[in-house]
């Protein structure tokens, strides 16, 4: 394998950082998928063992991490669409920066409601009365 060149190929700004985030979110989701297939496999073992492990997902701290997982998936999906537009749309490369900002706006629009619905129960049990 060639060693790193004297300079650097990384150019920073929107193009590089969106790519860095795409990698990190992708690897994160991949490792979660591994754990998730194992925990879901317990439906074949017994209802008790499955309900026990799924109880972990209802824990307030894990519940917050689930919003993080959804955020990672949403970013990876939206950025994936952006990559496809850069690849296949003739004006894609020219508008890659603008597309990233549209993507980030859509990200907020999707993740905020998800956080609301996912954390409703947790917030109520910690702070609320009902």
């Amino acid at each position: 394998m060639p060693k790193a060149p004297a300079g650097t190929l990384y150019r920073g700004r929107e193009g590089m950082w969106s790519w860095v985030a795409h990698r990190i979110t992708g690897v994160l989701v991949f490792f979660f998928l591994f754990a998730h297939v194992l925990d879901t496999a317990l439906i074949r073992v017994s209802p008790t063992s499955y309900d026990k492990v799924i109880g972990t997902y209802k824990n307030p701290i894990v519940n917050v991490m689930e919003v993080g997982l959804v955020a990672a998936v949403v970013y990876h999906a939206l950025n994936g669409i952006r990559i496809m537009l850069i690849d296949f749309w003739e004006k894609g490369p020219r508008y890659q920066k603008q597309m990233l900002y549209v993507e980030l706006a859509l990200f907020v629009i999707l993740v905020v409601p998800d956080a609301y619905f996912s954390l409703e129960h947790t917030v109520r049990t910690i702070f609320g009365s009902t």
Partner: peptide, 17 residues
């Protein structure tokens, strides 16, 4: 799984079955 009808709180073996 995460948003509809109370999300993850309602998931158990019976739900998957």
């Amino acid at each position: 799984m995460n948003v509809l009808d109370g999300g993850v709180q309602r998931i158990n073996w019976g739900f998957v079955a």
